[in-house]
Design a protein around this nucleic acid. Structure first.
Lengths: 239, 239
DNA sequence: ACCGCTATGTGCGCTAGCGTACAGTAATAC
DNA sequence: GTATTACTGTACGCTAGCGCACATAGCGGT
C-alpha cells in the first residue's frame, strides 16, 4: 500500500538512519487531514504525534475571549506533538489543520519509546524543537513590530515553503484568525498584493504569482526563521 | 565557601536527586551577574549555562534596526542556555541580565554530558524547556492582543515572582526595551499604577505595594504561564 | 432560475501607540 | 557646590488597526 519511500516526504522521517526507520515503519499510519480539523485541543493529551507530508498544521494560542493567534506552523519539516516527548504531555495551545493533506501518525507512547533510546531520533526531535522555539520567538517580535502587510507576506511564504505548488486554499477570514488581526485588515493587505501582481485569489483560493517580489516585501522575521530551520535541520548530522 | 544547600535556591538544581547533584556540585561555580551584563549574544556559542538564584535574565529577540522584545524571562526556576543541550548550540536571541544577583554556572560540555546520561537532569531540562515554549507562545499572543497597561502588570508580576522582595531596580527605559514599546508608553502605564497605589517608584527603583491589585489588572497571560510552570516543574516527579 | 450562504470590498469614527520635542528633577561626578 | 547626566513627565500630531455596518459577488443546491 505504501510506497516505501513515501514517508520521506516528511524531513524528520527522511533524515532517520535506515535502522531507526525500520523500527518505526510498521507503526506509521498514513492519515488524511482535512481543513480545520483539530489535532489537539488546549490542555488535552494527544494520542498520536503527526508527521505532515503535504499538509500544514497551525499551532494556535487561544484566549479566554476566543481570540487566537498562530504561534507556529508545522509542515513536512516537522512534527505535531512536541509536548509528548518533552515530558509535559499536554500544552495550552491548539493544533489545527491549516492546509488539508496527508500525514503519518504514530502512537504517542511509541514515539516516546523511540525518543528515550537517546539515538538519532532524539537528537532530531530536540533540534526540531529548538527550531520551533525560534519560530515562536520571532512570531512574538513580529507581532510587536511589524505591520499586517508584512506579516501577511511572512505567513504566505511560510505556507508556500510547506506546500508542493504555489496555490493555497485559505479564506481571508482564516488568515485573519491565524495572524490575530481583523479580517478587513487582511482584505486590505491582500488587496495591495493583488494589485501589485504578487498574488491572485478568489473565494478562498490564493495563487502566488511572484514569489520573489513577496520575498522582497517580507520583514526579516521570515529569513530568521527559515535560516534557523536550515541550520538546525538541513545541515545536520544526526550521527 | 559554599553553603552546601545554597544552590537549591535554583529550583532545577534543587529538584535533582542527591546522587546526580553530587556529580555536578564540584563543577558549579557561583558568579555575580550585574545589571545589563550579556550572557549570550545573538548567534554566539555559550561557554557556560547559568542557573540563576536571585538574579533574573531576559531573553531578547533583537531586530536589524536595533529594536528588541523580550520573549522570555529566566530566574531561579530555570536555566539560561537551553540551546546547548537542545543540540543547536546557538540561538538567534540575546540573554541580558535584567536584575543583578547571583547564579551558578556550569561549563556547557559538562551540562551536555549530564543531559546525555538520560537521567533526572534530562527530564527536568526538557520539562523546563517546554515551560519556556509556553512562555514564548503566550508572549506572542500578549504582544498581539493586550494593551501596554496589562503587559506592564504581567512583566512586573513575572519579575516579582523571581525576586526575593517586592523591589525592582529597573528604569522605565529598560522596561520599554523589554516590552518592545516606547518609553513614554511605560511612563504612562506606570503612572496609572502609581496613582492607583499599586506601585511606587522613583528613578529606577520600583516597589510593588499591592501585589493583589496587580493580579486583578493583569491579563490572563500571566496565569497561563505561571500555571504551566507550576504544572511542569513543581508537581513533577523526575524520578 | 432562483435562493441562500459564504467570501470579499469599502467606508467611517475611534483608540492605542508611535515619533518627536521639550521641560523638570533626582542622582552623580568633579 | 555646581555641573552634568540620567530618569521621568507631558504634550501634540500622526498612523495603524479596531469595531461596526453594509454592499457586492461568486458558488452550491434544489
Amino acid at each position: 500500500m505504501l510506497d516505501t519511500r513515501d514517508f520521506q516526504q516528511n524531513s524528520l522521517l527522511g533524515m532517520l538512519p535506515e535502522e531507526d526507520l525500520n523500527r518505526l515503519l510498521p507503526n506509521l499510519e498514513k492519515v488524511t487531514l482535512t481543513l480545520g480539523q483539530s489535532l489537539c485541543e488546549s490542555g488535552q493529551q494527544m494520542s498520536h504525534v503527526y508527521f505532515p507530508t503535504d499538509s500544514i498544521v497551525s499551532l494556535l494560542c487561544v484566549m479566554e475571549n476566543g481570540a487566537s493567534t498562530e504561534i507556529a506552523v508545522v509542515g513536512h519539516e516537522g512534527v505535531v506533538g512536541v509536548s509528548l516527548f518533552m515530558g509535559g504531555e499536554t500544552t495550552p495551545s491548539r493544533a489545527i489543520v491549516q492546509s488539508a493533506g496527508q500525514a503519518y501518525r504514530l502512537k504517542g507512547q511509541l514515539l516516546k519509546n523511540e525518543f528515550y533510546r537517546a539515538g538519532p531520533m532524539q537528537r532530531l526531535l530536540l533540534r526540531y524543537t529548538q527550531a520551533l522555539l525560534t519560530q515562536m520567538a520571532q512570531t512574538a517580535v513580529c507581532n510587536r513590530h511589524h505591520c499586517v502587510d508584512q506579516q501577511l507576506c511572512r505567513w504566505l511564504l511560510l505556507s508556500l515553503d510547506r506546500l508542493p505548488g504555489d496555490k493555497l486554499v485559505m479564506t481571508q477570514e482564516l488568515i485573519a484568525n491565524m495572524l490575530g488581526v481583523r479580517r478587513e485588515g487582511v482584505t486590505e493587505a491582500a488587496g495591495k498584493l493583488q494589485r501589485a501582481g504578487l498574488i491572485s485569489y478568489n473565494r478562498g483560493h490564493i495563487t502566488v504569482t511572484d514569489r520573489h517580489a513577496l520575498e522582497s516585501r517580507v520583514c526579516e522575521c521570515y529569513a530568521v526563521v527559515k535560516d534557523e530551520y536550515d541550520r538546525l535541520l538541513t545541515h545536520c548530522e544526526v550521527k
